[in-house]
Design a protein around this nucleic acid. Structure first.
Lengths: 352, 352
DNA sequence: TTGAAAGCGCTAACAC
DNA sequence: GTGTTAGCGCTTTCAA
């Protein structure tokens, strides 16, 4: 029940109620309330209709409208996790921009893209107009199929073969910034904890890392690039592998593809008896407030995740409206380095 | 366009398409596909209908169904933030349970409860069946009004005067566990960084803290309870106030209402020259994996946030179905302490 | 400038 | 057992 002006009523007012109160036909009320300019309506009736709508607290039933218009004004945000540092920021960008454009966001956590039932639910049941997908392998036949079937679908912080619409940040450049920072401190052997194997995000960060090292004459030790899976557990495993390298081949600094693996690796190093940061510098791609509160503070490259979320919504809605999907790289804001305690010049007695 | 069996089609199949293919009337198809048992249908026609639906990849249009049935099978999760430690867990519980019950979750970040436009959008436009509200002051006339107006509304991790439906965890008990831990280490003067003033969550944690201190004969110094606002910034301000106390009145241990304020306070103490944890023990209410990676690791009491999210969905859907809303306390899993490095016995030369 | 009528896709009550 | 009918609330021709 909804209380209106002190009275209780059984169900929300419909446009028929508004029309009746304003003494016009529902179609007239509809025209006025939607502000259709092509048809002209006398100022007097318009006022009557607006007044009636206000009195009744009228709001168009989104289902009736959606049924008639064949669109939902909702999009879905699909992600494999909520807890990853950075997802908050992406999600906030998505929700802010969606709200500005009058869209709702349905957030769904899915283990993998192979969730046909989920796609069916969202798209075939016409619950949302399009999908923002924050996961997926480079080769992901399911996603490619859905995209090819004509479902508006944009990948976010990912590129997937066969999916035309994507929004990513400057991952290669961010990796380069991280390498340059370590080099400027005097590091000559640098390792890399990459992300989830099979994801292009990880691949692009790694290729940016390798290109920067090559350009700057940095040695990347054999087995000095290990997968960290964008996770705490992965970072731990990666650290173990790096520590297994003979001391004279071991990197003195590491670029981690993400903060979680960087944190876990740092912890592992310390537990193994290393003194950080002097014996091992660590810099992560993707920043977060919380990195100020770990010890040592984790040096990190901030990426435009919030903006990426915003742009992704914009792109998806464009696709929904019929634009041809295409890949997009968010370059504003540019990646920026925040130096904290985790990166220092290498201890020479170790690095020799 | 949607590809079905190799052909492209303009729009998704409707129940009329299914009926036509199965050579039955749409209403028969509807009955069969919904599995209505009250009406019996011959096995043969049932098979034909299922086959047709499968061939066409038929899925009922949620808008048409929603319009007809007057329900959306969606709920909204309203929260002031996404980035707070703990929200992930709540949200995951909400989404998991909602998915199990066939509901979608619309996540909305709202600055405050005073967002009438938002409520209108969600409820008056009938976009969702009910609201899960993860914020609100104890006295929140807007929320109370909406709840009284008959909108299904359940507060989550909060209680609000005038809103009958709520789901919270054992905040008082968690605070007691934290106090007991510090007492068992030998602390005699304990302070408290409380949460956001005006929220019952903060109030209940504080009252649990005070009750436990009283029961255990612990001294709570005058001005030893300061608001931390559940935030980094608040924790910093709180730490400043605690440090301003004369040394012989200063607590040797602190219970923080949340991890963010605990982290920020700890950082402030260190920056001010204190040696942690020996000069100041800190324990936080609400746990998170990341607390293993700060230095010293933050001792914390884990709360059943995931379960709280699940129960809240269950409760809300009950209210939607007509049950009388009532307050609920999640007691499983019970709050549990994880001791990390941030709590030790007090340094006697300081605490004397 | 406004009204009438049809229909989006579905389901429930009723008829046969 | 299955079909007929009506209508959820809205918008969009088309007609007046």
């Amino acid at each position: 029940m909804v209380q209106i002006g002190g009275r209780m009523r059984e169900s929300p007012p419909t446009i028929i109620d508004v029309a009746r109160l304003a003494k016009v036909h529902p179609s007239t009320a509809s025209r006025v309330l939607r502000g259709v300019s092509s048809q002209s309506v006398s100022a007097e009736t318009r006022d009557r209709i607006f007044d009636a709508a206000k009195i009744l607290e009228y709001r168009a039933n989104s289902f009736a409208r959606g049924l008639r218009l064949q669109r939902t004004n909702a999009i879905a945000l699909l992600s494999p996790y909520l807890e990853s540092l950075g997802f908050n920021e992406i999600a906030r960008g998505v929700m802010d921009r969606a709200a500005e454009l009058g869209y709702m966001v349905v957030t769904v956590v899915a283990k993998s893209s192979a969730n046909q039932e989920l796609y069916s639910k969202l798209m075939l049941e016409k619950r949302v107009d399009g999908l923002l997908v924050a996961f997926g392998m480079i080769n992901d036949p399911i996603l490619a199929k859905f995209s090819n079937d004509g479902f508006p679908l944009v990948t976010l912080n990912r590129r997937v073969n066969g999916v035309k619409g994507s929004v990513v940040v400057e991952d290669e450049f961010a990796a380069r910034i991280a390498v340059e920072h370590l080099v400027s401190l005097g590091h000559k052997r640098i390792g890399h904890i990459s992300g989830q194997p099979g994801t292009d995000t990880s691949a692009r960060r790694e290729s940016g890392f390798r290109a920067a090292c090559a350009d700057l004459g940095v040695i990347v030790p054999k087995r000095g690039v290990v997968p960290g899976n964008f996770s705490l557990e992965g970072g731990r495993v990666a650290a173990k592998q790096i520590l297994a390298l003979p001391k004279n081949l071991r990197p003195t600094g590491i670029v981690a593809a993400d903060p979680l693996s960087a944190l876990a690796a740092s912890k592992y190093f310390k537990e193994a008896g290393m003194v950080l940061p002097s014996e091992m510098s660590v810099v992560a791609l993707n920043d977060d407030m919380i990195l100020n509160y770990v010890e040592p503070g984790l040096t990190a490259v901030r990426l435009g995740y919030y903006e990426m979320g915003r742009v992704a919504v914009q792109t998806l809605i464009g696709v929904v409206a019929g634009e041809t999907p295409k890949p997009y790289v968010v370059r504003e804001p540019a990646p920026t380095l925040t130096v904290r305690g985790s990166t220092v010049f290498p201890r020479t007695d170790v690095s020799i």
